[in-house]
Nucleic acid binder design. Sequence first.
DNA 1: CGTAAGATTGATGCATATCAATCCCAGTGG
DNA 2: CCACTGGGATTGATATGCATCAATCTTACG
Lengths: 268, 268
Amino acid sequence: MNELGDPIHQASPYRSSSGRSAVRPDETLPMSGRIWSGLSEICDLLHIQSAVTAEDLLFPHIRYKVGQRIYTAGQEFESLFIVRSGFLKSQMCDDFGNEQVLHFPMEGDLLGADGIHTGRHQSEAVALTDCVVIPVRFKKFLSLAKTCPEFEIALCSYISRDLIGKYSMVRLLSGLNAEMKVAYFLISLSQRYADLGYSNKCFNLRMTRQDMGNYLGLSLETVCRMLTGLGALRLISVDQREIVIHDVEGLKSLRRLKLPQKEKMRLR
Amino acid sequence: MNELGDPIHQASPYRSSSGRSAVRPDETLPMSGRIWSGLSEICDLLHIQSAVTAEDLLFPHIRYKVGQRIYTAGQEFESLFIVRSGFLKSQMCDDFGNEQVLHFPMEGDLLGADGIHTGRHQSEAVALTDCVVIPVRFKKFLSLAKTCPEFEIALCSYISRDLIGKYSMVRLLSGLNAEMKVAYFLISLSQRYADLGYSNKCFNLRMTRQDMGNYLGLSLETVCRMLTGLGALRLISVDQREIVIHDVEGLKSLRRLKLPQKEKMRLR
DNA sequence: CGTAAGATTGATGCATATCAATCCCAGTGG
DNA sequence: CCACTGGGATTGATATGCATCAATCTTACG
């Protein structure tokens, strides 16, 4: 392994996205293009407003093709990974070999922080589309935090966002029924696309129904049924992995069947 | 509100734990005793090995009684809170007033980091027993991190541990059946008590069945049934909130009914 | 065209929620 | 001292949401 973490695929020739994804020829990544990012681009990606500039500081881009792993469970932790483009899946295996999908990282997300504590990655990250990822040595990250106060804040803000993400994940899994889980999933995906400047109405799912179900705590069949169900309600259109959202508010306003205690009291 | 966060109860006279908790008279907290901690004690609590000593740096202890809130949702974020003693519950309300229990913090846990990102707390923390909590201004925390490299690492390690905690929470909620959820809950509680030097075989539950169920994504009745079920298996004894664990390994070895895909393949 | 992976749809069963009744226990007040 | 009260815990009966099993369909690709 060389100094960049796991760039063993860097030199392999680029080819168009394989598998069943809906990537069309004109969406393929350019063979040429920038293969380095400066510090200011890193800050942009992570939404850090930094006054610090260091023109000589360059971070290499690494390309991954569909199905390739950015890091694997058990691998030594060296770098955090910033997603420059593409769509990924992070997952974890328990002692019995059951996989659990944890997250679907995309542009601007930071990966690999689960390795800090033990020095080894606990989870793995797989490319669901062709990806460009920027590895940043953790030591480098720390020294940046030391010299640049905005990095310090960003690091803490990341803790905080992560905590809030955990909260909403818990609520999703333990408080919602299948229909709402799927609706919520679509809404949050839509929101993430919107935040990145893409369409929030129309997008392709990059993961299988199996992955979605695993992530949401549902069987893949239930995911299917809920998707067609939401389609029957005219809230969305589904064609395989292509999703069109017709009524965001409608999706959001699907109420849980279980009324909260306070509501029940009022209804008596 | 004064400079310490929410110490409006600090001056109120101490009284013995109320409610139905199994706290006995001799477990009451002393009226006197230390009401300040030095930096070295803070580091001990957070498991930070620091060479830095600053004898003049003192952090006040705040007492909370059963039912009092350390911070509430929407409250301005100022401080992180380190639990010195006691048992708490952190929870969050969604837009419809549904509460979701997120965690049961105890000695050595750090609370309130969910406020960093937005500047306001997203969740609230309630004392389930009488507690002693040490608030540390976030700015103070940052400046400590700046002068003391161990604090920096500890901060990152906290991210990492938190991430791993998220993983196990997701797996708990979406991968286990009711029996295993309850068993897992008891095991992890037992482990936390053991880590603090208390008995890992015999302890009191400080939360209601309702809270447990909410946390585990189960109804309170199911929690009851599972507890009595585990009792019938001679793995534990239950008497109201008093738990005795007879067979840790037995609890751990309860397998999920749903076999992993690979297992199923092998069995054919 | 054949194959395989994924998606869809239907039939059935079970785990768990829900509803309801009772029990337990600690305060509280007569 | 004892009855009363109220929150929590327990247990049983029933309903149902979702998993599971199974068959078919779609799409991509060799």
